[in-house]
Structures are given as structure tokens and as C-alpha cells.
Design a protein around this nucleic acid. Structure first.
Lengths: 235, 235
DNA sequence: GAAAAGCTTAAAATTTTCTTAAAGGTGAGT
DNA sequence: ACTCACCTTTAAGAAAATTTTAAGCTTTTC
């Protein structure tokens, strides 16, 4: 999946800046616009996955902009409105926004809503993902079920802790690829890894104890001296 | 297959018009009604494959209409509700609606849901499920009747609240699959879930009290530490 | 054989889940 | 409009399980 771009539109530059900072912390790319016309322009020149739009704006207000945009693009829109009265209006109007928040909003809630909207929107693109076909990765005698979050070794289910599961999932989904401790930490814990080698190592050891016949001479989870760990690419 | 007819019901003519336009673009035939009574009339005089219904309407509101309609026809129903309405009402799903959307909704999502519902109901022979096979999920001693919205444990009916029912339905329809609290919240409440762990947990506990012999050592509704909850896949 | 990298262990610290109770809401019936 | 009954949410302490830390040990590399 490439990068996700979000367009933030409000006539108050401070608000745009604050929201942009929030979203950038979540690793989104942010575009800024300060009225409806600028917003339309940005939409034409960039590939935008989601818009955040203030209802009250000069030149072209949020509601008009929403309707205008809907005629051209089917990008998800999150409306911001100052008053609770507006909220009812927005809801009643069914103008084509996907969600709305009233100011003052909780930054965490804003982020949560953005994430939820993107999850839904991006999921619609992919074919029927609901129930049905399973989601399984196999590597030699190892089988990882990503829905049930269950690993089996030669058919026998193995009980992994949450952290162990995440490490195994990372390595098994990229067999053969070598990750150093810092990379593993950052991808599993989702935070910068600084002097965490030992922590990762302890988890690796526990995983080996559970999946290897002889943990001291591992068949699956191998070390690459000086570089990191990998799941051996077999079969 | 002949033409597919969709009945759209809302007291706001603008909304009906907008939805109708969307659906007509998808080559559906659209009937319009502006309150529950008109809707019932349309149902009697036409062959309708799917209904879209606003919850808030004068004369006869969406929920009453849903129940009324369910008594006569087993047509799939998509409910529309304003966000301000609480989950309790939306849990009208337990009354017989098949899906719902909250306003404001994304046109794309509305179309996607309509398509998905029709695929589900038309693909399985007739649109009339009442005559067809029953809609039941079984898991060990648990039996969930999705039509009657009734759970039985070892043959004894259990009274679940609307929220409890929806959690159980989610988990039982995907046995073995692990859902974390956030996922459960989002799929049951249709709202982004942030800091709602405890809310979900309390519901889980109440469900266990109702379905487990020993809630402290559950046989069906199990926790997977650090990852979420699941219904145990048993036979 | 020395240095660097990786391994092992178990106790301490933290996180996650469970439990209970009370507060907050909503609809039904009067 | 008011009260009652029931359901949902919030809060906080207890319990359970996992993660981190730290220190000493082993293996590999040069």
C-alpha cells in the first residue's frame, strides 16, 4: 500500500496546522487548503484519499464545497462544524459527507474517525473480504492463521503471546527477509526502537522454544550474524 | 434475471431523490415513498427486492414500519439513521432490518451495501427467505437463530439484550476468528472505537454469565491474551 | 584467544483482563 | 409528565498474564 494523502481545509490556519500535525504523527501525508476553491484545486492536482472540511468558511463554505466535490470525486469527507445545531442539519441533509465532528473535538477522536473511515473506504476497493476464504501463511511445517491468530507446528497448535504472535507474523509474511532487532521492534511495537536489542532477543528465544525441535539449532527462525533474524524460506 | 426494484422511504423528498438518482445510475428501478404507510402500500402493489428506510419518519417511523413489514414480507431492509440516535434504536437490527447506515452516509458506501445485500439475498434462490432454509448457526451447545434473533444454550432459550445479541452474532458467525475490543466495537456499534475497551469487556462478561456454565472459565467465549476475544470452534 | 554478537534466566515491572458497583439513559406504562 | 424497570457506560481496584530488565554465559568471527 502506498502513502495515504489527506486534505485538510479550514480558513483558520492554526486549526489546519494542528490537525496536520496530528495526522502526520500517524504517518499520513497532509495537504492544506484555506477555502473551498483552494480545496477543489488541490483535489484536481493530487491523489487524495480523504478530506477534512470545515463547514464555516469564506468564499465557498463547507457544505457547498461538499456538494461540489461530490459531483466530481467520490473521496470520503469528514466535516467539522462549530455548533451542535449544524450537526443535526448535516445529518438531516445527507449531503454526502461520510462523517462529522463538532468543535471542539477531541484530537484522539479525530484520529480514530479518520482511521476508521480510511479502513472502510480502502476496504471497499478490495474484493469481498468479509467471511469465507481464509487468511493463512505456510512455511514448511509452520502454518499461521491470521484471522484466528493461531500458529500450528506440524499440525499441532502452539500458544503464542501477543508480542510473539506479532513477531512471527512479521517474519512469516516476509520469509527469507532479514530484520534487525531495531526493525522488528519498530514494526511490532510501533514505536522507535532504541537499545531494545535484548528485549527482542528474549522474545525470539521464547518463540524458538515453542516452534523449534532444537532451539539451539533452529530450523525456521534463524539468526544472520551481525544483521538480524529471518524465517527460513523453505518448500 | 429481470429488473431489480428498490423502494426508498424517507420523509425528506430531497434525500429520496438523491438516493434514487444514485440507484438509477446503477440500473435499479426505484420506487419512492414518503412515510411508512405509503411504503406499505407500495410493497403491496409492487414486487420489491430491497427497501431503504429512514428511522425517523412521521406517521409511522422506520422501526415500526420494519416490524410491520417483517410480518408480511421478508424483503431485505437497509435502515438509515441519524448519528444522534443511539445504538439502542439502531439495534433495530435485532428487529429484522438486515443492515443500516448512519447519516451522513457516503453515496459510494450506500451503493456498495445495496449491491452486497442484493447479491446475498438474490443469489440464494429467492428473495423470500421465510420460505427458504432457516438461518441458524450452531457451535457446540449454542444455537443462534439469525431470523428469530434467538440464542439457545443446550436447548434452553437465553434472553440477550440487543448489544449482547449483536456481539454474539458477530463472534458466532466467525467461529475461531479473534476480534479485539476495538474491532468488536466498530462492527457492533458502527462507530470508531477508541478507549472503549472496558465497555466491550463488560458486555463480554454479561454474555458469559448468560451462556457459560462457569463464566470464570469459559468454554465458548474465550479471551486470547493481548489480541482479543473469540468463540471457540467446537463440534 | 579476544572481541563482538547472540543466548539464557529469573525476578521486577508493566500491561491486560476481570469484577463489581454505581451512574447515566431510555422506553413503557400509568 | 412521572415513575419504574432495564440496559449501557464508566470507574476503580483486584487478579492474571506477559514483557522488560539485567547480569552472566556461550558462540562466532577475525
Amino acid at each position: 500500500m502506498g502513502q495515504t494523502t489527506i486534505l485538510v481545509v479550514d480558513d483558520d490556519r492554526e486549526i489546519v496546522g494542528a490537525i496536520a500535525k496530528l495526522l502526520e504523527l500517524e504517518h499520513y501525508t497532509v495537504l492544506r487548503a484555506y477555502d473551498g476553491l483552494e480545496a477543489l484545486e488541490a483535489l484536481h492536482t493530487h491523489d487524495v484519499q480523504l478530506m477534512i472540511l470545515d463547514v464555516m468558511m469564506p468564499r465557498m463554505d463547507g457544505l457547498s464545497a461538499t456538494m461540489q466535490i461530490r459531483k466530481e470525486k467520490n473521496v470520503p469527507i469528514l466535516l467539522l462544524s462549530a455548533k451542535t445545531e449544524d450537526a443535526d442539519k448535516i445529518a438531516g441533509l445527507a449531503i454526502g459527507a461520510d462523517d462529522y465532528l463538532t468543535k471542539p473535538y477531541n484530537p484522539m477522536e479525530l484520529v480514530a474517525r479518520v482511521n476508521a473511515m480510511l479502513r472502510r473506504y480502502l476496504a471497499l476497493g478490495t474484493a469481498d473480504r468479509s467471511a469465507g476464504r481464509d487468511n493463512v501463511v505456510t512455511l514448511g511445517g509452520l502454518t499461521l492463521d491470521l484471522d484466528e491468530k493461531q500458529l500450528t507446528v506440524d499440525g499441532a497448535p502452539v500458544r503464542l503471546t501477543a508480542t510473539e504472535y506479532r513477531i512471527v507474523a512479521l517474519l512469516m509474511q516476509n520469509p527469507g527477509r532479514v530484520y534487525n532487532a531495531e526493525e522488528i521492534y519498530e514494526r511490532v511495537w510501533n514505536e522507535p526502537g532504541y537499545s531494545v536489542e535484548n528485549t527482542v532477543m528474549v522474545h525470539i528465544r521464547r518463540i524458538r522454544e515453542k516452534i523449534e525441535i532444537n532451539p539451539k539449532n533452529p530450523k525456521y527462525l534463524k539468526v544472520v550474524w551481525g544483521l538480524g533474524y529471518k524465517m527460513e524460506k523453505v518448500q
